[in-house]
């Protein structure tokens, strides 16, 4: 771990009883969903993490519970540091408080997570899908989302598939 990161990790451990993991010099801090806004505010105001460089999620279904990790990747340009905060959440419609009032950039990224993983962000100003069409069902980046959409057409099943293919009208 970077020397400059040690006090930061320590203070997060004290304040939020955060656990942390280290992998190839990268620090991952785990906090609870209700603490995330405070943790982000602390990091931004006290420790110069002025940039939320990535906000994404991982679905560990079915190996792990809780299945989702919401990942906040923070960068401090002033100190040349980066740290990762992870919020484990579970269930079919998990909820995390929104970070839009801490980092403006979180707005579209949270919409993307809502779209792709179905993670809801409490208090988000504009909770709509961002990439897929509005009327789409399901969340494509979930591990239990069906992979293929159409069966490939070969000579032996050509007619059968042709019958149920939704051809356009004039």
């Amino acid at each position: 771990m970077d020397k400059k990161l040690e006090p930061i990790v320590k203070s997060l451990q004290d304040k939020f009883s955060a656990t942390f993991e280290e992998f190839r010099d990268e620090v991952h801090l785990f906090v609870k969903p209700e603490q995330i806004v405070d943790a982000l505010t602390l990091l931004r105001d006290e420790y110069n993490f002025e940039l939320l460089s990535a906000l994404t999620a991982v679905d560990y279904y079915p190996q792990e519970t809780p299945r989702f990790h919401v990942v906040y990747q923070l960068t401090s340009i002033a100190k040349n540091l980066s740290v990762q905060i992870r919020v484990p959440v579970n269930g079919s419609s998990p909820k995390v408080p929104t970070a839009t009032h801490v980092y403006d950039v979180a707005n579209w990224r949270e919409r993307e997570l809502l779209d792709m993983f179905g993670i809801e962000f409490d208090g988000h100003p504009d909770p709509r899908r961002i990439l897929s069409p509005e009327d789409m069902e399901g969340h494509p980046l979930r591990k239990d989302f069906p992979l293929g959409y159409e069966e490939p057409q070969f000579t032996f099943n050509f007619d059968e598939i042709d019958l149920r293919k939704p051809y356009a009208k004039e």
């Binding site: 897929s132 959409y149 159409e150 490939p152 057409q153 356009a168 009208k169």
Partner: peptide, 20 residues
């Protein structure tokens, strides 16, 4: 024509589903 390599949720499997 048929979706090509993108047999997935995001792509139409052939534009003949949209226009003749």
């Amino acid at each position: 024509s048929c979706g090509g390599v993108f047999n997935n949720y995001a792509i139409f499997q052939g534009v003949d589903e949209v226009v003749p």
